[in-house]
């Protein structure tokens, strides 16, 4: 059997073609991996909530307040996870090292400074407002659920029970904020475990609390730097990894993908140019006017 076909295709042209594409994509991938974590820019007036686990008694008033503010039926008993009608719940953590009794961890959307959910969303239904809240436009959402994978905190919940399901997540009570009120959970919290304010001021407050009671707090504000920072800031007596908080670097989650996505026009241009050029070269070599020689009838039938 002749090896002509084999040699012609793979060695010379084929790998050359693949090589050009690979080059373009490698450049994209490798440079993408070297993106430095940049200073996380937070708008000076961005708001946040300081959640002090040492002050939370686990009364679950915030759960009920949140449901009432969003028109959901009141909770029957304590919730154990975020869901389509539970935008916040109190996670009870028993036997945690460094705590006397059980610790109560209020969970909700962290309102990231660089939200991966918003970066990933196919149709831009999730949006980071300069004021801090990460909002959701239910009118755009197609229910693809990519945001559920992109969020490092497992926050967005899907309406599994609906025929036409959408996403649900804490909206920072954006409507109440616009009316000059505090988020429902913060307003109703009876112990002062939740404190609403400017993120910068809250960070100063957190530092002050840790300074005054170094025995009471771990020297770490979760959310100050995690994944580029979050609007929700936690103070705790116990290690955060023991409380189910993910260990995230200070690099915003969406940086890498965003860098690669930015190269899209460059990659498209490179591939299109390389492909056209290759075709043109091949044609010239075969001294044919048209790029494809017409009527090359090569029957394979024997």
């Amino acid at each position: 059997m002749s090896k002509k076909a084999e040699r012609q295709l793979s060695r010379r042209d084929f790998l050359r073609g693949v090589g050009a594409l690979t080059g373009a994509l490698t450049l994209e991938s490798v440079t993408g991996s070297r993106v430095e974590a940049s200073e996380t820019e937070v708008a000076p007036d961005a708001v946040g909530v300081l959640i002090d686990l040492t002050r939370c008694t686990g009364c679950r008033t915030c759960e009920a307040a949140c449901k009432a503010a969003h028109g959901f039926p009141p909770p029957d008993g304590g919730e154990t996870s975020l869901s389509a009608d539970t935008l916040t719940y109190v996670d009870v953590r028993e036997n945690v090292e460094g705590a006397d009794g059980p610790l109560h961890v209020k969970r909700q959307c962290m309102h990231c400074v660089h939200p991966a959910c918003a970066s990933a969303c196919t149709v831009g239904a999730l949006h980071k407002t300069p004021e801090g809240p990460v909002t959701y436009n239910a009118g755009k959402c197609i229910g693809c659920r990519y945001c559920q994978y992109a969020c490092p905190f497992g926050v967005p919940a899907f309406q599994w029970e609906e025929t036409l399901g959408l996403i649900a997540k804490c909206d920072f009570c954006i409507n109440r904020l616009e009316e000059g009120q505090q988020p429902a959970c913060v307003s109703d919290c009876p112990t002062g475990a939740l404190k609403f304010g400017k993120r910068r001021a809250l960070l100063r407050e957190a530092a002050a609390r840790m300074d005054t009671h170094p025995d009471r707090y771990l020297n770490h504000v979760y959310g100050e730097h995690e994944a580029g920072g979050t609007s929700m800031l936690y103070l705790s007596p116990a290690r955060f990894e023991d409380l189910g908080f993910p260990e995230l670097g200070s690099q915003p989650i969406p940086r890498r993908a965003e860098f690669v996505m930015k190269q899209t026009p460059m990659v498209a241009l490179t591939v299109a140019t390389a492909a056209s050029g290759l075709c043109w070269l091949r044609t010239r070599r075969e001294e044919s006017g048209a790029c494809v020689e017409a009527g090359k009838k090569e029957r394979t039938k024997r």
Binding site: A120, T122, C141, I142, G143, R145, Y146, Q159, E162, L164
Partner: peptide, 17 residues
Amino acid sequence: GRWDRFHHFILYWNVHS
């Protein structure tokens, strides 16, 4: 989830995604 909005990616753009 919202297959009735299959076409939304044509209307609403997010070039980061």
